[in-house]
Each structure stands twice: as C-alpha cells, then as structure tokens.
Simulated assay, not measured.
Amino acid sequence: MTDRRTLLTGALLLAGGPALAAPEANSGAHSEVSASRPVGGLELALAADAPSTPTGLAISRSGRVFVMMPRFTAQVPITVGEVMPDGTVTPYPDAQANRPDPGRPQASLFHVPNGVFDRDDTLWLLDAGLPEGKGAPVPGGAKLVQVDLGQNRVLRVVPLDSGITPTSSLNDLRVGSRDGRPVAYITDQGQGEEGAILAVDLQSGLVMRRLDGHASTKSQKGIVKFVEDRPVMQTKGDGPPQHPKGGANGIALSPDGTRLYYAPLMGRRLYAVETAGLLDPKASDAAVAATVQDLGEKGMTGGLTTDSQDRIYLSLQEHNAVGRREPDGRISVLAADPRLVWADTFWITPDRWLYVSAAQVNRRPEFNGGRDLQKPPYAILRMRIDADPVDGR
C-alpha cells in the first residue's frame, strides 16, 4: 500500500507560495481534496492530514500553518498542531502540552477550538478546558495561552475561569487593542441554548462576561442547518436525532477595533456590539445590550473575519461557499467549491490571500448515527482578495 505521507506530498498548487503543498489526485479518501481545477475562484492551498476535526486555522507572517482540533472525545490525540509542508500535522508546541492533565490545568491543553496571531506575530490559543467536548470545564483549564513562535514556548497563560459557567463551551477568539491596551474577545457557544461573549483586558487579566443570555448570543429556535444536501442532526446516547444547538460562535473585529461582529452557530442573523462597553467594567449589562445591532440575514455560518475595508467574510456552510457582506449590508457569494465541506475558520495573510478551512464537522459520528464519515486529509482552500487583514488596533 502506498504510504500515506507519499500521497500527501503531491504537486505544488501555490505558484510562488512558500512550502504549502497540495496532494495529487488519488483514488479513495484523498480524492476529496484532489488538485483538480479550482471551482468558483478557490484553490487548494494545503491538505492537512490531521488526526481529528480541524476547526481552527491560523497562519503566521512567515507562512507557518497551525490547526486547532477540539477534543470532542477523549480519544482525540492532540488539540493543537502545526501543518508541515507535506501535510502531516505535528503536536504544538509539543506533545507534552497536548496531554490533558486536570492536575496541571494551566500547563496542558484540553480543548482548543481556535487560535489567532496578534500584531507581534505571537500565537494566542483559546482553551475551553473541556475534557471531552462536554460537561463542566476543568477548574483552571479555560484559558488563553500566548506562545512565542521563535522559541516555540509558552509566554503567558491568562485564566478565564471568572468568565465561564458550568455549561460554557468557548469557541472563537479575536485579539486586538483598545485605547492602547491589549484586549481579547471570546465567544461562548454554550452547551445548550445560552451563549455569551467574554471581553478580556490582557494587561490586567480582567475577564468580563457580557450579553449572557441575550437574544443575539442564544441558539435560535426552529433553525435547520443543511450541509452536503442533508439536515445536520445530532444523536446523544440512545435518544432520537435532534437539531444541534449553538449560541455565539463566529466573531470578527472592525478595522478600527470599535465594533465586534458575531453570530450564533444556530442562527441566520449577524450582530454587532460596541467594544467600549464590552471592556468597561463599570458598564451595566443593559448599557452593553443597548449597543447591539441586528445587521440582518447572513445565512448559516461558522467562522467570520473582516478585511481592512470593514467587509465581513461569511463561511456559508450550507452552500460550500465563501460570502462577503459589504458595509452597506449587501451580501455576495465570492466562491463555491465542493471541497469546502463545513467551511469554518478564515485567515487573511498580508499578501491578500483569504484562507478557509474545511472542517467536515457534519461528517462526525455524532451527526451520523455513530458512523465517522470524515475523509482526511482536510482541505485548506484559498482565494485572492483585494484588501488587507485587520489587526484590531
């Protein structure tokens, strides 16, 4: 049998791109991300042979690619990995850090759904502290972890315990600055219908839980999500299939850092809130809620991101597509590709490439009666855009 790594080596699709290799077309699972002619403007940047579902994606300025694999079950071997040029994924920052240890909650990674780079090109990882994707977070396990790429070592850990609940499921992260101080924003998707947003002053370590139970952060009732021509239905134990729930999920920052865009996983509307109130410990919940804007319909999405023109990119999961919302509210579909199965996390590089991960979440066992229909390697696609990334200043 041909060695799996050999199948991943393949021909380069990235003309002039640094060490991001794509696989050759092969039979079997690898045909899912074959180097066929791009459809609708997307091309295959990399096929990540990840050991589990890679929902998160972050790319450094030097071109290093990282994926985050939430520990949906205890069997997930690593939760953060670096994607090598041949598509293999190695534990990051090392194997030891990826071994969950409730006795050392600040020193080990439990369930990392996402990570981002700041303006200094240091990596921030969001750890939800969940031992196997559900249940109460491990005490001390929910945290932000700052990693120095030069030395591949942890610089700082910011505990998030004061901002979470026993049913929290932290999901997405943005790091920026506000009034000259470093800040972070985190969505709490929750494990039921409730959601929230966490605002973190990275200078003091103060964590504020905002919009807890607000209509804009809740899982919306009566919503059906279709992916790959099928409704996404979740099975828990011996119970009947149910529509999944999910509160505040994707987030993005405006170029000037004054507004945070967000949306529930199970919801078709996009919202915005002023960051000044999120970060002000003296602001009441009512005052923060008063700044929430309903920006209208945007389709069923996972991850969001913004560019320097304040345009919001939408992972249109029901259409295997990338959409974009203009500041005036107009939405267009930029590209579609059958390889973009469960479009999830975006990343914009300084040379104006928009990357998006295909996480295949809908193919996981809990959505298919216990059958694992995921087909590694997982596609990371990209397309050219005409704007720069946002640094959240």
Rank of each mutant, 00 (worst) to 15 (best):
T217K: 05
A252W: 09
R371A: 15
S216C: 08
A35P: 00
K134F: 11
R119W: 11
G190Y: 08
E326K: 10
A35D: 11
A95P: 08
M266G: 01
G56F: 10
L109N: 02
T291H: 02
E366K: 14
V83Y: 07
V292D: 07
D120K: 14
G63E: 08
Y313W: 00
A290G: 03
D372P: 02
G16F: 05
Y271S: 02
P240K: 14
Y185M: 08
N152V: 12
P105E: 07
A35V: 04
V175D: 00
I380P: 09
D188P: 04
A289T: 03
L354N: 07
R268I: 06
D294R: 02
R181Q: 14
D118W: 06
V80D: 00
T165Q: 13
V157A: 08
K143T: 05
L170H: 05
A252G: 12
G247D: 04
A47F: 04
L170A: 09
P102C: 10
T349A: 06
R178C: 03
G222L: 02
L144R: 02
D388S: 14
L149M: 15
T187S: 15
Q317V: 14
S60R: 09
G63P: 08
P241G: 04
A387F: 09
L265K: 12
D256S: 09
A45S: 13
P113H: 01
W353I: 03
L44K: 00
L46A: 13
G213N: 05
T345Y: 06
A142L: 05
R99W: 08
Y355L: 14
D120C: 09
Q220I: 05
G246N: 00
T55R: 15
A287H: 10
Q203W: 04
Q203G: 11
A276C: 04
G302T: 13
S162V: 06
H30W: 15
N362V: 11
D285R: 07
V112S: 06
